[in-house]
Design a protein around this nucleic acid. Sequence first.
DNA 1: TTCTCTACTGTGAACGCTCACAGAAGCATG
DNA 2: CATGCTTCTGTGAGCGTTCACAGTAGAGAA
Lengths: 343, 343
Amino acid sequence: MTMGNTGGRRKPPTIHDVAREAGVSRGTVSRVLNGGHYVSPAAAQAVDAAIRKTGYVVNRHARSLITGRSDSVGFLLTEPQERFFEDPNFNVLLRGCTQALAAHDVPLLLMLAGTDDERRRITRYITAGHVDGVLLVSSHSGDPVAEELRAAGVPLVACGKPIGLGSKVSYVAADDRDGARDMVRHLLALGRRRIGVVTGPLDTPGGVERLAGYKEVLREAGMEIDERLVVSGDYSRASGEAGAERLLARAPDVDAVFVASDLMAQGVLTALHRAGRRVPEDVAVGGFDDSPAAVAASPELTTIRQPWDRISTEMVRVLLAQMGGEDPAAVILPTELVKREST
Amino acid sequence: MTMGNTGGRRKPPTIHDVAREAGVSRGTVSRVLNGGHYVSPAAAQAVDAAIRKTGYVVNRHARSLITGRSDSVGFLLTEPQERFFEDPNFNVLLRGCTQALAAHDVPLLLMLAGTDDERRRITRYITAGHVDGVLLVSSHSGDPVAEELRAAGVPLVACGKPIGLGSKVSYVAADDRDGARDMVRHLLALGRRRIGVVTGPLDTPGGVERLAGYKEVLREAGMEIDERLVVSGDYSRASGEAGAERLLARAPDVDAVFVASDLMAQGVLTALHRAGRRVPEDVAVGGFDDSPAAVAASPELTTIRQPWDRISTEMVRVLLAQMGGEDPAAVILPTELVKREST
DNA sequence: TTCTCTACTGTGAACGCTCACAGAAGCATG
DNA sequence: CATGCTTCTGTGAGCGTTCACAGTAGAGAA
């Protein structure tokens, strides 16, 4: 009685059913499914109709078994997870990647390598061919997982320039150096001349590049680099606070600070406030990332926005290309200066 | 010359290779792989050794093809994605689910149903049997995707009590009502007597329950519900601000506000500050969620913490049980009052 | 000894798909 | 009229695993 297309189905239709329905052979249906080359228009139409009528969906397992591909990719996070999972930009990245892949009908598997045990299992899983490629989030220098995947020849696209991996690894990154340049130029344009910097960790490309941009612009402007104005942090809020204190102690005449992350910049604001300096009147503060911390701060932070949505789509594009046989590629995307109250 | 275990492998070892290496048959290897029943200790040991030696990893596609299971689950978000992806608690949930599943060697597929097109594709994908179960985040009343999955008999566990779905759907939720009770009791214990409330959307179970808890405690305390003290919001910061203004206009003598989300509570703080009310001296403010907004706020918010880590592990537990044939279940987990500066 | 029962093991036969190949048209060229 | 070429189609094989079944060995009971 109830045999319609709704209701609890037991056995889904196979390519066989579609072939019978369309009056063609399995091979023809398969060809239609895979691009439709070498298929007559009439047959293609019949197959399409049969697919709709039967509600056929390809069994990816059977396909994978023979093709050796899985037609899925992994999103692998080997970073200390707290840090990344608390960064809303990470969400934008994850969402962007998922959607960009979905547009290509490629499922995304989320993999978190926290413990060594997980690392091992995930490495095995990937090298066994259960995913065709990996989107990697890791700024670990010499990440063992990444290295092993690279060695196994798994298509890999890193978010941000990876350290310690050969040039064989693709990556997509924001132009950290140029972002830093923009910010420091902005501070110069405001008439500031004693510009300090709180760097990120200098064993990460981001940390290095942002510092390099800072120095470049000052040199361009004919100024000497005063090492008293350079202190380093680790992207944490606390390190920003400590950094600002050191800065104030070493160079009390500082009139602007370029901080390599918004979170640290929040700490800088706290320290400046405590020291009785007004922002931006006495000291202008520029952050980096355009995280929610930037607007949550008071005053709201001028910062550098990284194009996370474009980063994600580019990562997917590069990965799919590489899975299709193309060579690894590096993509650098421009950043944007977002002016707010702190400068 | 270079034939070691490292390096670019072409063909991964199969169950055949393991069987040959161990001197047993495919069947025996398969039995070892699937629980080891009806296998002699000697054979089991030989197989284990052979697996280690060959570096064998089961081909899940081949397995799935015959078992009909995929041994993977989907994490499905049908909510407007901006809202959830900006909520760090969502991250905790996602991470917790991923890790709990990883412990069972079950991969997680991330699925975002934003557009109708995506919704259709995902529904097809799931009902075609490409995942064995679904972790669902959706407070949509009458979510069509959820309804279709339920109808198709796909094991489903919702995060939070779902609306409009039959009792056949499992869910795991924090005890919203009890959390609200705790907060309002806390405000009463501080001596406040004119306690206002900014509710969440009243077409969600969370919104309804939190309001119910508020009313319960006041009635318990022998107080009448003054409807002037009840305003509704939609969880957004702006709606909190507007709500507080309405509250102040309608009941200027308000001395405490229970706000159904931290984000709204931030808005409430802003409005109170603007109106010249001191927090907590003049008006105590209690939030809900313990989101980062709670500590970012000034003063830091007293709030109700939902056990997101436990919610995730419970969701996974219930889902796996259901995939194993058990009946749907509902799990309600206790919340925790976190006292900070705002009360 | 013979039988039965249990514990274990090996062997096709699938699962649903793609791929290589063989073949059948249709059509122009020699 | 044969020959080649292109376009299209069907068929068998096989991907790596599990499952059902048949079978073997050893222990205990008759």
